[in-house]
Nucleic acid binder design. Structure first.
Length: 229
DNA sequence: TCATTAAATTGTT
DNA sequence: AACAATTTAATGA
């Protein structure tokens, strides 16, 4: 089996497909690499592909008219995104930017739509993914209104290692404090202090350009009124 | 491969 | 927001 096929087979949705469906999916996928800082696509582009991250890190973001940058979410290894726009066959509603060197898989729209029309397993995957993404965005809105900066930093780190949305991200997340600040809507100095305190509390470790998650559960619940742990 | 320099990232004010 | 310190990446012998 080719290396490319092995990579596709490890995709989180691949195990849901029949052999026949998988063959078809694999034929519709190409590989691409994006250097750090490059765009996978821009807000307003026509949607031609569904994207998966093999290695690297990508952010969904947008820039307001006044030039203010907003980051909605980060997608790490094993994550797939853009199904909403592909399904509706509409223009992209945000930019997708590689913030580390990224190896990506691109499934063309015809193949995606074929799986959507024909594969029960693929639809099960889609519902799970859309549900989790919705939960992520609701939670993020809630954080921004209710939680202090340290808790926002902690929870965003936890999302980057979410087993449904970024299943192949291990314990080490390669992200700069600068990018984490954009993601958590916190100033960079506050990210720096938050990381120091969270490390002190034993929930993570951090080094130049990388964070090692020690307790993802506690990071994800950080700052909750009730402590369920 | 190693030393030097530039660039990126971090820590602090 | 600015600055200094540190780490990594790039360059060329």
């Amino acid at each position: 089996m080719s290396e490319r096929t092995e990579i596709i087979q490890s995709a989180i949705w691949a195990s849901e497909l029949t052999t026949d469906e998988f063959e078809r999916a694999a034929r519709g996928i190409t590989e691409r690499r994006f250097d750090k800082g490059n765009y996978l696509f821009h807000r307003g582009d026509k949607v031609d592909y569904w994207h998966g991250v093999v290695t690297g890190l990508v952010k969904m973001s947008s820039v307001s008219q006044s030039g203010k940058a907003i980051t909605f979410a980060g997608i790490g290894a094993g994550g797939w995104f853009g199904e909403g726009s592909v399904l509706k066959d509409e223009w992209r509603r945000y930019d997708l930017v590689a913030i580390r060197n990224t190896h990506a898989l691109l499934m063309n729209r015809a193949t995606f739509m074929w799986l959507y029309e024909n594969s029960v397993g693929f639809n099960r995957f889609l519902v799970r993914q859309l549900n989790e993404r919705l939960a992520q965005f609701i939670a993020t809105t809630e954080y921004e209104r209710l939680l202090d900066p340290k808790a926002r930093v902690a929870r965003q780190i936890s999302w980057l290692g979410n087993p449904l949305l970024c299943p192949h991200v291990g314990n080490v997340i390669e992200i700069t404090q600068d990018e984490l600040a954009l993601l958590a809507t916190v100033s960079r100095p506050l990210v720096n202090r938050s990381l120091q305190e969270l490390a002190q509390e034993g929930l993570l470790d951090f080094a130049h350009g990388a964070i090692t998650v020690i307790n993802r559960q506690k990071l994800g619940d950080y700052g909750a009124i009730e402590d369920f742990s």
